[in-house]
């Protein structure tokens, strides 16, 4: 078979991939990251401050979600809520799945707040709410920023899993194009290059942020 790189195919597929990238891949990444970052913090605080039995139940559910495949979770949610749009299912499942990772990051961040800070809040007889919002969380967040960013990148690279529930994100758009043209080379290669171009500079930035934060500690 005569297979060579065809530039006209490449230019034909590029807009298709980019529209999948901006309309689905990036959208899901951003919205799911927000959900994961907020929900993860809530989980971390509940596990730390709720009564023991509740903390343990939450802990088990979190471990269960974290240790089972997102593909299976996507399919489960898709069939369980057939009347909900698949992209909404995707955003919710990605957000919840990654919140379990981010919760672990926050937990470590909260643990890194020195004991003396907690003692100081007691000395100042601060309310529980003020302890978390004014003292613990602001200090905990600093240490967690790079790790959260890395999970956002992981999520970004996991978004092609959405094709299991029929969401046409970038890779699925490329596959459809490839199938229609009997040629996958350009579509899948360019999809990979777009992932690399988007994720590598971001991870370099996060690496620099990490170094700066570590240095100023």
């Amino acid at each position: 078979m005569n297979v060579v790189w065809e530039w006209d195919k490449a230019f034909e597929v590029l807009p298709v991939l980019l529209s999948g990238f901006f309309q689905v891949t990036l959208l899901v990444t951003v919205l799911s990251t927000v959900i994961a970052a907020v929900l993860g913090l809530v989980i971390a605080i509940v596990r730390r401050s709720a009564p023991r039995p509740i903390g343990r139940v939450v802990g088990f559910v979190v471990d269960f979600i974290r240790m089972t495949p997102i593909v299976v979770q996507l399919l489960f949610a898709y069939y369980a809520f057939l009347n909900v749009s698949p992209i909404v299912i995707g955003i919710a499942v990605f957000g919840i799945h990654y919140s379990t990772y981010m919760a672990e990051v926050y937990r470590a961040g909260i643990d890194s707040v020195p004991e003396s800070q907690w003692e100081a809040t007691t000395a100042l007889s601060m309310s529980r709410y003020r302890i978390w919002t004014a003292v613990v969380v602001p200090q905990a967040l600093r240490a967690t920023a790079p790790a959260l960013g890395n999970y956002a990148i992981s999520m970004f690279k996991d978004t092609p899993f959405l094709l299991t529930i029929g969401v046409v994100e970038m890779v699925q758009a490329g596959l459809i194009f490839g199938g229609n043209n009997f040629k996958y080379l350009e579509a899948i290669t360019i999809a990979g290059v777009i992932f690399l171009l988007a994720s590598y500079p971001t991870s370099l930035l996060i690496g620099r942020l990490e170094k700066r934060l570590a240095f100023s500690n």
């Binding site: 690279k157 094709l163 890779v171 990979g192 994720s199």
Partner: peptide, 16 residues
């Protein structure tokens, strides 16, 4: 291999 998604690599090996 880190930067290009797992799914892309899988499909590249399987379809391309």
């Amino acid at each position: 291999f880190r930067g290009t998604s797992l799914v892309v690599q899988l499909f590249w090996l399987f379809f391309v």
